[in-house]
Design a protein around this nucleic acid. Structure first.
Lengths: 140, 140
DNA sequence: TTGAGTGCAAAGGATTTGCAAGTGG
DNA sequence: CCACTTGCAAATCCTTTGCACTCAA
């Protein structure tokens, strides 16, 4: 559902064809794409869109808090459109697939005050790594 | 205490001046340096050492499991010499400083079986983000 | 001795930037 | 209309690579 575009518009975000396309690409699938993959899909809908614009737009969406940046161990960052639900990532070490999983409690509570060293802690990222079922089958 | 070099030697790691220097730099401070920072400090002890060698060596140490690669949100990876103690990271969103903190329980246990989607989960990374005391003071 | 390790410089991939031209509100 | 966006290409940053040379074991 594209309440993403709604939210952006109501925030006074200048809506251009390029930006709409990027938002739609992110909103469509719930996979976690790299900037380049977003660009590739965007080109399918709007052939003239440039890579720079995709980067700009993704950067803004991250700043606005509508999209999350996920740095995997590999090189290219991935973008997670699911920023409004607290969730964590489960990454396959072999093929790189990312799945969203949902925490049971508040993971922030796991850090006791005496381990905070005076930091004001506002956020936790939790990433599980393992082998996905598909890769487990394919493994030697 | 450089049992790091001990361990490496006993694993049959070919010991060169460059490798020793890199290991010493990592072993010395418990900060989390970028490859370039490691190189800069290594140059202090061994002026001819090249960046490529530092990258090679860091990569090997990671492969050997002696050092951990930490991908922060920024660009350059940081290297964590504290690979033998289970720990998590507390990162200052403003200045990028990384501190090690120590988990109370096993964070792997926090992911229930029905949230594992058939993955064989072997590892969790937990990263807390916030503002460190120094930056809190400096903030407007 | 001799293959593993090194340095250099050039290649590589991901992302950013400068600036002229386009366009949404 | 006009400040904000875009596209393009070149630039930048981090990292890897190819290859001749060196050195630890």
């Amino acid at each position: 559902m594209s309440d993403l575009l709604e939210r952006l518009r109501s925030r006074g975000w200048r809506l251009t064809a390029q930006r709409r396309v990027v938002a739609e690409v992110l909103d469509g699938d719930h996979v976690h794409l790299t900037a380049d993959e977003v660009h590739a899909r965007a080109v399918g809908r709007l052939p003239e869109i440039s890579r720079a614009t995709v980067y700009n737009t993704l950067g803004e969406l991250v700043t606005l808090g509508e999209v999350l940046e996920v740095s995997t161990d590999g090189r290219a960052k991935r973008y997670d459109p699911n920023a409004h639900h607290a969730h964590q990532h489960l990454i396959c070490s072999r093929c790189g697939t990312i799945r969203d999983v949902h925490p049971t409690g508040d993971p922030l509570a796991a850090l006791p005050t005496d381990e905070r060293f005076g930091f004001v802690v506002s956020n936790v990222e939790v990433t599980y790594r393992g082998i996905c079922p598909d890769c487990a089958v394919g493994a030697a």
